[in-house]
Design a binder for these strands. Structure first.
Lengths: 325, 325
DNA sequence: CGCCATAGGGTATACGTATACGCATATTAT
DNA sequence: ATAATATGCGTATACGTATACCCTATGGCG
């Protein structure tokens, strides 16, 4: 029973007899022996590890993490475990050199990128990754920018869903809170979907009813206040995230407006808090479980040299009191 | 410039001259060269990686993760980064053999254990870890059970804080929702603190006003219903977690009770949703940021063979409407 | 009965780094 | 001035595995 035979047996090579393998496995168990991951990776140049890089624009409290992405973590780790991969995790601020750190040092076979943040500033880094032939997937807008492999929700469809629902309950003047520029492609897509729904119903989207906001309660509050101050009437709000929606609800409440009577409101993400606001918040739920699975699956296909295309996940409208007329 | 010199230079050894080091670093940058982590770990037997093992009792939806621990993730990853360590992550169900998987295969230098769950069932595994001389820290009750190194909130003190506050606003019959058995040492500690506060104020804790509950809204709802059904009067509730508290609030609301007039209520954890309930929920906040830092710090000390003792973190009472008389 | 294919497993080696050791040259003590 | 030390770096080797290659039995086939 030489060392290579043990190596072959434990990795399930077919060139070792069943009897020998059983024997080796028994002895390994007795000795509490496990294969040294470092030696194995060094020799085979495969780490069986994926790196999860989480980046955001710097926040005041640097230890805060967007809860939306955290909720994806469960299915990602689970999927990694099922596929026999470890997960290396790192929460980076955008300015770091995450784009070289992981692949070159042979820590991982591929990278999963999660994060909102200014899309333009990290586009160059993505291109660098492509150049180095680093395997990666990212979560984000699925509209084709040609860089790498993307998995994301059908944001345009989701925007249409939200718009259709608001129109269905009789709303005509629908405001949108969220950055609609190409700095935030996902928010932009949601706005696009809303506009499509409105046009399909014969309504004209009013640019004056769109206000930029990043995904935070404060930003949503500020955006809603600005919208109210502008004086332009509206009877519904589609917020690009639940946090924005919650901030907006606070502003509307302070302004003495009743929801949903005066203003119906829809959020995005279905964070746990959405069921606890008053009124409870109608929102668009993303398939986080499927997201993790598709991300890992797409990345592993890419690592194995199999064809892997963009994947789009459907969303689901969760109707609650904030649109219950 | 031999290979060992490069190795020495890049790791900051003092036995290489400043000029040579600068030169080597420049060339490394030009060539996009980084040290191979696997080879380095293999040779030095140090991975510079910590493993985060997250375990829970199996839940219906296996991809769900306790948001409380997720919020610790930020400061843990950050602290790891600051100390030059990678973080390997794994969410395990209790029944797996996590207690052997990581250390033996040389994936990490040490383990951080997070998780609620039945304490008794994993006690044996902890002892196994100690036997194997595996370096680990865990988050939990700091009451001394002698197994390994623990970092945790001052749960007894927190219970006293909550009790004192409720007594201060004139409550005399304080119920406790949360498992008070030694299956959940942290909840037990919180109950102990509450009882201490009551006794200090000349009140006698009534065992009939304690109801078991695990940390979920459903469980809190059920516990509060049971409490109401028992008919024993009470004017305050201290819930062992915010989720329990939120469930209890739903039960109280359905019973037509007004909070805080009829029943004041305090939760635990200060999850984001606590500020969104109506009434907003008074709660005990744990120092999650400090927690991550202390966990990592304690583990690294242990790995380096330095003395490392148990660490206790203070908590802070966040007063909101649910106790505002 | 001789031939070849095949299964099963051993031998030798390479992966890229860290470290013990040795050897110059430079520096200080005597 | 000579011996004693320190500094800076090269040589040789080991970490534990995976893989290319080789060798031995065994069985099938003519």
């Amino acid at each position: 029973m030489s060392q290579p035979t043990v190596s072959r047996a434990l990795r399930g090579s077919k060139s070792v007899s069943a009897a020998t393998r059983a024997n080796i496995e028994r002895i390994a168990r007795e000795l509490n022996y496990t294969v040294d991951k470092n030696a194995s990776s060094l020799r085979s140049q495969r780490t069986h590890t994926l790196a999860l890089l989480f980046f955001e624009d710097p926040t005041p409290d640097e230890s805060m993490i967007n809860p939306f992405f955290l909720s994806m973590l469960g299915s990602i780790t689970r999927q990694c475990a099922l596929r026999g991969y470890d997960l290396l995790i790192s929460f980076q601020q955008m300015h770091n050199d995450w784009h070289v750190a992981y692949q070159d040092s042979h820590r991982s076979d591929g990278i999963i990128l999660l994060g909102y943040g200014d899309y333009q500033t990290y586009r160059a880094k993505l291109e660098h990754l492509v150049e180095m032939d680093t395997k990666f997937v990212r979560w984000g807008s699925v509209s084709d920018d040609g860089i790498g492999l993307t998995v994301g929700s059908d944001n345009v469809g989701a925007g249409r869903q939200a718009g259709d629902h608001l129109i269905e309950i009789g709303r005509r003047s629908i405001a949108f809170l969220g950055d609609a520029s190409d700095h935030a492609p996902e928010f932009q897509d949601r706005y696009t979907g809303l506009c499509e729904a409105m046009r399909a119903a014969g309504l004209a989207p009013d640019p004056a009813l769109q206000r930029d906001a990043v995904s935070s309660e404060e930003s949503g509050y500020a955006a809603a206040r600005a919208l109210l101050a502008a004086g332009k009437p509206f009877d519904a709000i589609f917020a690009a995230s639940d946090l924005i929606a919650i901030g907006a609800m606070r502003a509307l409440g302070e302004a003495g407006l009743h929801m949903p009577r005066d203003v119906a409101i829809i959020g995005f993400d279905d964070i746990p808090a959405a069921g606890l606001t008053s009124p409870t918040l109608t929102t668009v739920m993303q398939d986080m479980k499927g997201a993790g699975e598709l991300l890992v699956d797409a990345l592993l296909r890419r690592i194995d040299g199999q064809p892997a295309e963009r994947r789009v996940l459907p969303t689901r409208l969760i109707e609650r009191q904030s649109t219950a007329v």
